[in-house]
Design a protein around this nucleic acid. Structure first.
Lengths: 219, 219
DNA sequence: CTAATATGTTAGAGTCTTCTAACAAATGTT
DNA sequence: AACATTTGTTAGAAGACTCTAACATATTAG
């Protein structure tokens, strides 16, 4: 069983390797807020446990064993987030910090019960897919809103990231998952988009925001 | 904020000092499964934080600050146990291990939400009182069944301890909190009691068991 | 292609929690 | 009271995770 610290390294490696497959020492230390030497020695430790592939001065990657271990932690994290929102009435901006702690709890019974009580949800409150019990995860096919052009109608399906600030911002604009959005116009100068949805006839969002709004086509 | 380890020492001190007020180094090390020297140094550490009173070769006691800190951990533990039983469908024999981990989670929001969702329960699934937000706990006025005499009718209100084995034993006899019990007879030789309750006309329990069944008078 | 910069590594140390071995104090027994 | 036993303490060390300072290797820019 990996320690809580080791689990956090695996999880960070997992999210940093989305798409990329390989991760720097420095990226990891930035993500975990520890120094490079600390990461260096922990990576050696994880290597000795067969959880990462690593050679001096080369980038790090998860082994299959490490990838699965990480996915199972992500599963616990996302099931918890969904449970807190669905069954306990928390807002989607409140659950990350709590799930960050609960994800290390050692009790498959607890998480499987959450899973059952929610009828096996496929995604967390931010639209990120929940890995299954075997650690398999379905890659989401959603695209950033910024890729689409004027006139297009889409539905908000997930978020590129889910920092508390971003979630509070979306709350303030009354934008939530499942909302149907129409692109009214795009500012060519800075890529900002004017959108229409629900009772918001015209809201402007920066390009950065639109890159983090993952959507699917409608109609 | 106390570390998880420190919290476990406080909690152990708290339960060992029920009634007694003072605790030995050896009792603590037995309860926590660590060596005497380990306890000795941790107790010095807790003393330096103002959580315990302690002098060389003397027994240990919690300060008011320590007592409150411990009670708040017990509050989190018992709220969690009750939540797992009431809202997640676990059996009373399954929840201790999970609560043992969840009690260290740092999130008053989580535990206050549990409290609200259950409408501020007063006791945990084993009948032990839940301390309030200020760390105050109502001493239970229940007495062990073994104190009563033949013919007496009582109601099972709480348990003296709640080890998994004991709980499974009670499950096997279909005995749960709230059950009304009549003492049919008492064996003078070994103090075992013959009880009648619900659809169990005659069940014999050892004195040791009856000392852990806390009851209140009925009728 | 060298020099400057960025990135990674090693060495040595500190904190927290734990241990064992050896010693000291308190308690119980005849 | 004197001895034996139990209980508590000190000293020294180890493992996990972290740091800073100093050094080594890679990468980037002129």
């Amino acid at each position: 069983m990996a320690s809580q610290t080791e689990e956090n390294y695996l999880k960070a490696l997992y999210s940093l390797s989305v798409g990329k497959m390989e991760v720097n020492i420095s990226e990891l230390s930035a993500a975990l807020n520890v120094s490079n030497p600390t990461v260096n020695s922990m990576v050696k430790n994880l290597k000795s446990k067969g959880l990462v592939k690593y050679e001096k001065y080369k980038p790090i990657s998860l082994t299959e064993k490490g990838r699965k271990a990480a996915a199972l932690i992500v599963r616990k994290h996302r099931l918890t987030e969904m449970f807190l929102v669905e069954k306990m009435g928390f807002g989607w901006e409140e659950v990350h910090e709590i799930a960050e702690q609960l994800e290390h709890v050692n009790s498959s019974a607890l998480f499987e019960r959450m899973d059952e009580l929610m009828d096996h949800p496929l995604v967390d409150p931010h639209g990120s897919p929940i890995p299954d019990r075997q650690g398999n995860i379905s890659e989401s096919a959603y695209e950033p809103l910024s890729k689409f052009s004027s006139g297009r109608k889409v539905k908000l399906a997930a978020l590129g990231h889910s920092s508390t600030e971003f979630l509070k911002f979306l709350n303030s604009r009354e934008l939530s998952l499942g909302t149907e959005i129409e692109i009214k116009s795009i500012e060519t100068y800075d890529g900002s988009m004017v959108l229409s949805y629900q009772n918001h006839a015209s809201e402007t969002f920066t390009k950065a925001v639109c890159e983090s709004l993952l959507v699917e086509r409608v109609g």
